[in-house]
Design a protein around this nucleic acid. Structure first.
Length: 302
DNA sequence: AAGACGAAAGTGGTTGA
DNA sequence: TCAACAACTTTCGTCTT
């Protein structure tokens, strides 16, 4: 709280909760008005009272097919429906049936898709916000009818791939394909399709986004990691990055950085975690040290 | 013996007619 | 729809440490 009155320098204030105003106690200047009262206006002495007085429920989430909320008319078995007159009961049955049919059409699909999402993303160890984004994208895809003629898994995988990129924690198509049972080719195709249809614009991934993950998998020190990022930044300004596969460039940068900091990893090891071949690393890192004038430094380190 | 190197042929995907 | 094309992979023989 920035709690000095700009007018008189006083630090005492009066809060007028009825008007929602914050007033300086000394000079009477109104510092804030129309504040939102976020406090409860009621008290509850036990759980039952709280249940009754609470006017909010749980958080909305896109990872549940019903966003965490759902209604059904007349639960299973013997319920209140049986207290109705027979004539009314019939119409409630119709209502119940209609309700469940409408909801199941897209919801059954969603429910299945979201369980699939859960499976893949926990296999890949992805955080919750990414799941939320994925679920949101998938939802949009369903309502736009983009799932038709495509396997549901492929759309989930594609949405997940997009969500990862959006959050700058890219996974490679290979990784996504491995976690789901969708072929890489299919994921890529569906990804391109849905991003186009939904108008999602994503910048090409930067190799830098891969550094921390690869580096930690190789158990490299933060220092080396930073070095790799630094190399990449310089490389970007020399246009050594565009057009190349970002994973290859990232792998090369890590290889160079690790040699320079005496934490040398073999090309083989780096290639393994980055999912590229040694040959690619060689090609990339040759370019890097050449263009950045690091040949001598590199030669010293070897 | 392991790692690095580079040539050569093959693969999947993009681009432009 | 097709061919040309660049990036990347696979494979393999050779060199270096």
């Amino acid at each position: 709280m920035a709690d000095v009155c700009p007018e008189c320098g006083s630090t005492k204030f009066i809060y007028d909760s009825k008007r929602g105003e914050k007033i300086c106690a000394k000079c009477g200047l109104v510092l804030e008005e129309r504040q939102i009262d976020t406090t409860q206006e009621w008290r509850a002495f036990d759980y039952e009272q709280k249940q009754k007085r609470d006017r909010t429920g749980s958080f909305l989430t896109y990872t549940r097919h019903d966003k965490g909320l759902s209604t059904s008319i007349g639960d299973h078995g013997y319920t209140d429906l049986y207290k109705l007159k027979p004539s009314q009961r019939a119409s409630f049955y119709r209502l119940k049936r209609w309700h469940s049919q409408v909801s199941t059409a897209t919801e059954r699909n969603l429910r299945y898709a979201l369980s699939e999402l859960d499976r893949i993303s926990s296999a890949l160890g992805l955080p919750k916000n990414i799941r939320e984004t994925t679920a949101l994208i998938y939802r949009k895809a369903v309502t736009k009818g983009l799932v038709r003629g495509r396997s549901m898994e492929s759309v989930v995988a594609a949405a997940l791939y997009a969500a990862c990129r959006k959050h700058n924690v890219p996974r490679t198509l290979d990784e996504i394909a491995e976690g789901s049972n969708v072929k890489k080719r299919e994921v890529g195709r569906t990804y391109r399709f849905i991003t186009r249809e939904l108008g999602i614009k994503l910048l090409p991934t930067s190799p830098i986004d891969y550094i921390s993950r690869f580096a930690s998998e190789l158990k490299l020190s933060p220092k080396t990691q930073q070095k790799a990022v630094e190399i990449l930044k310089r490389a970007q300004s020399k246009d050594l990055v565009s057009g190349r596969g970002p994973t290859g460039v990232a792998a090369a940068a890590i290889y160079v950085a690790s040699t320079l900091t005496n934490e040398k990893k073999t090309q083989r090891e780096v290639a393994e975690v980055a999912g590229v071949t040694e040959v690619t690393i060689r090609n990339r890192y040759k370019e890097l040290i050449e263009q950045l004038g690091m040949e001598d430094k590199m030669a010293d380190a070897l």
